[in-house]
Design a binder for these strands. Structure first.
Length: 423
RNA sequence: GGAAGCGUGCCGGAGUGGUUGAACGGGGCAGUCUUGAAAACUGCUAUACCCGCAAGGGUAUCGGAGGUUCGAAUCCUCCCGCUUCCGCCA
């Protein structure tokens, strides 16, 4: 959500943002509805003022005069009721349009239609060369008995899975790796709810437009697609002081995505699943672009350092405008090397949102002068499993079919090499 | 799931239909007094939107959404949340 005053004053910027993001949005339509809404609002407020004056006069009038004064007020009231009805309709129309206004991409974001236009900004790590025929993560997991996909889909349906044995231990180790690292950076740890009310989803910009991506329940609750949703909801309708910022959270939560529209992609294994676990970084900071940029770089660096500690090769790309979600100002994806596909695959997503979410969620702070502002929000993946297990297993595989455990995870896994189970 | 109760401003806490944006107390800010501080005293102390160059004016807001009424914090309905008791449960 953007400020309507900003939109009124900068319709061209909004129009350009929609074009860049390849989003179908008609600014003129919004401005027309806005103008109508303001006109009717003024009528309504004038009538209400007359009602208020009239009602007070009734209270002070002698009993004999009240009757016809009330009759007059009833006439105004009928008129008012009609205009209020019209205002209600316009407000709703206005609100629905406002939900669809895209946030303005940062000038540093490259223009482009899709993720094919994302620009690599740096790489880290040496791409491993295997002088034996390598296995993909599916083969490794099967041979090492780290997962069961047949029974996974029997129980959970398409894209369902069980993790087993060291697959479980590696998951816990990765979560703990992320948690330890982020807590050392001063982040407050949270285990946040995956079952959320609609408000947080609207507030984070997932609803109303991405409903098809979410799982609902019979109780008007939804399954969160990321911990970001509940962590942002955590502070909705709160007002902070500038001194309390930045608020830094590292949140653990299961995440659920219907993956609608991706039926042909990654149909096997653990790359794209409906149910996964995310350890997510979330920051609220004061409303200055430079402050957001600074934290964005920090959040991104933290995730890179966690990958470096695992010695996994990755690259960072800046998402092109056409691949930028409509609430985001700027986004980096971190893509980790997947040897079997000989390419980098997205494992992290780091976003600047400015006040897009906090305006919807009503998260504000008072600056040193006492003025109120909507905070800025940012988020980035710390670790998402099981996807990262694929990169981990493939990069760490050995000729004999075993998989080494990264140094950084050994204390949590308990072994240094994962070998086939004895029959 | 059943029963009862509760939800007021930064905090505590009045207020059951008529200048109530809301008594009173606390806190905060400014001032008087003081060498300084405390105390005491005085004043100020919400947010959003609309009109306006501004000064200023208007509208709304007492958990949320509707309703009754000329008029609602106060009455009615639904929803959300909290508390206590019972049931169930990891």
């Amino acid at each position: 959500m953007l400020d309507i005053r900003f939109i009124r004053e900068n319709p061209d910027l909004v129009r350009e943002a929609a074009r860049k993001k390849r989003v179908d949005f008609d600014v003129n339509q919004l401005l027309e509805v806005d103008a109508k809404r303001v006109a009717v609002l003024q009528d309504v407020e004038k009538l209400r003022a007359r009602m208020n004056v009239g009602s007070e006069a009734v209270a002070n009038a002698p009993e004999t005069e009240r009757k016809h004064m009330i009759t007059d007020l009833r006439t105004i009231k009928t008129d008012l009721a009609q205009k209020e009805e019209r205002l209600k309709e316009l407000n709703e129309e206005w609100r629905q349009l406002m939900f669809r206004v895209p946030n303005i991409p940062d000038p540093s974001v490259p223009d482009g239609d899709s993720d094919a236009d994302n620009q690599e900004i740096r790489r880290w790590g040496d791409i491993p060369h295997f002088d034996f025929s390598l296995k993909n993560h599916l083969e490794l997991m099967r041979d090492l008995d780290l997962a069961d996909f047949e029974r996974g889909s029997k129980v959970s349906g398409f894209r369902g899975y069980f993790l087993k044995n060291e697959g479980v231990l590696l998951s816990f180790a990765l979560w703990r790796h992320a948690l330890d690292y982020m807590m050392a950076k001063g982040f407050t740890s949270l285990i946040s709810p995956a079952l959320v009310k609609e408000e947080s989803l609207v507030g984070t910009g997932k609803l109303p437009q991405f409903r098809e991506e979410l799982y609902g329940t019979d109780d008007k609750l939804y399954l969160a697609a990321t911990a970001e949703i509940s962590v942002m909801g955590y502070h909705m309708n709160e007002t902070f002081t500038e001194a309390e910022f930045p608020k830094k959270y590292i949140a653990f939560s299961p995440s659920y995505r219907r993956e609608a529209g991706s039926y042909g992609k990654d149909t096997q294994g653990i790359i794209r699943v409906h149910e996964f676990v995310k350890v997510e970084q979330v920051i609220l900071c004061k409303a200055e672009h430079q402050e957001s940029v600074r934290w964005h770089e920090e959040l991104t660096r933290y995730s890179e350092e966690m990958l470096q500690a695992l010695n996994l090769p990755y690259r960072v790309v800046i998402n092109a405008t056409g691949d930028l979600p409509f609430g985001q100002v700027k986004m980096y994806d971190i893509e980790t090397w997947l040897p079997s596909e000989e390419k980098y695959r997205e494992t992290h997503s780091s976003s600047i949102l400015h006040d897009f979410q906090t305006r919807r969620l009503n998260i504000r702070y008072r600056d040193k002068e006492g003025a109120l502002h909507f905070a800025h929000s940012l988020n980035n993946t710390a670790i998402a499993t099981p996807r990262l297990l694929a990169m981990l297993l493939e990069n760490y595989q050995q000729e004999d079919g075993s998989v080494r455990v990264p140094e950084a995870l050994r204390q949590h896994v308990g072994v240094s090499v994962i070998t086939p189970k004895k029959a």
